[in-house]
């Protein structure tokens, strides 16, 4: 379905990290988690790919593909972005600071 799945930190059962490229992380402001931020996944050309809402604990994740991605967060606490390079399948985590 087209809604964002639960953005809890745990991966869904059956996620095969030898095949899936998962970008996951936490939105933070001054080291504290920011819940409910809108996290946008932009591809290597800056083009919008997907958007999720971070959980109450600031966690988010995307099922993507190997490559270079920009993660951009919009929140009441401010906005921020971070570039992530996923060299291959697996879990790639990042801390996304907003200010």
């Amino acid at each position: 379905m087209c809604g964002a799945p639960d953005q809890a930190a745990a991966l869904p059962p059956g996620t095969d990290l030898s095949k899936e490229t998962v970008l996951a992380g936490r939105v933070v402001a001054g080291g504290e988690p920011v819940g409910g931020a809108f996290v946008r996944l932009l591809d290597g050309t800056g083009e919008f790919t997907a958007e999720v809402v971070a959980s109450a604990s600031g966690d988010f994740r995307f099922f993507a593909a190997p490559g270079t991605w920009t993660l951009r967060a919009l929140s009441r606490a401010g906005n921020g972005q971070s570039v992530v390079t996923a060299g291959g399948p697996g879990l790639h985590t990042t801390e996304l600071a907003v200010a």
Binding site: M1, C2, P5, L41, E47, T49, A50, F62, F63, A65
Partner: peptide, 16 residues
């Protein structure tokens, strides 16, 4: 998205 259009994937990137 372009990847769905081209046939690379069948659903948006953040979804199963």
């Amino acid at each position: 998205s372009p990847d769905e259009f081209s046939g690379k994937i069948s659903a948006p990137a953040h979804l199963p």
